[in-house]
């Protein structure tokens, strides 16, 4: 039987928001199983395809949390287009490293980095309209949109991603047990 009745290949989109691309690197770590994956899915918007806008998809994988306005726009684009949205990695799941700034005042952060840090002379806070503005706090993606699945890990291993995705493609409720489930 097909993965989903009456359908051929599934369409997957991926994006990195406030993350480090480590989760995408982990996806590449499934090595030769990438071929197997590509037999079952097509990639839509993704750093791997360089497609810039997300079209209608079955699965969206989001790496990274939400730290600026652009992250919000991309996340909403994914939510609108993906039947299933999956938070991948520590930053998407709980804010991760970027969220370590959350106990600091954003204004003071910008001031310190661009104006008063040692060695800064004649500094200026960037204000080009091309640049997305940072939010006052960094958020995990489930605080912005509804999220269907979570794959924790910093990053989740290739094995974990493969287990999760193959469960999903085969129609099983995805499960991560020992030792695939880890938060670091």
């Amino acid at each position: 039987m097909d993965a989903l009745p009456g359908r051929g290949k599934l369409r997957i989109a991926t994006a990195t928001l406030a993350g480090c691309f480590g989760c995408h690197m982990s996806l590449l770590d499934i090595d030769e199983r990438l071929f197997e994956l590509l037999e079952r899915v097509d990639f839509d918007r993704s750093p791997l395809t360089d497609i810039k806008r997300c079209g209608p998809c079955d699965i969206g994988l989001i790496e990274g949390g939400i730290c600026n306005a652009e992250n919000v726009h991309v996340l909403r684009e994914f939510r609108r287009n993906c039947k299933l949205l999956i938070a991948v990695g520590a930053c998407a799941v709980n804010g991760g490293l970027p969220a370590q700034r959350n106990h600091l005042d954003l204004g003071l952060c910008l001031q310190e980095v661009y104006l008063t840090a040692p060695g800064v002379v004649g500094g200026q806070i960037p204000n080009d309209p091309e640049l997305p503005l940072p939010l006052d706090k960094v958020h995990p993606i489930h605080e912005i949109v509804r999220v269907d699945y979570f794959i924790p890990g910093c990053p989740p291993s290739g094995e974990a991603l493969w287990k999760f995705l193959s469960d999903l493609l085969d129609g099983r409720t995805p499960r991560l047990g020992h030792p695939l489930l880890h938060f670091d």
């Binding site: 709980n94 490293l97 969220a99 370590q100 999220v147 979570f150 991560l176 047990g177 489930l181 938060f183």
Partner: peptide
Amino acid sequence: FCPSCEQSGNCMLQALAYELEMLSP
């Protein structure tokens, strides 16, 4: 924030989260 915690891997809170398959906060 487990990735930067010295206790990660030896932490009971984390181990229990694994045990009970807690995937998100």
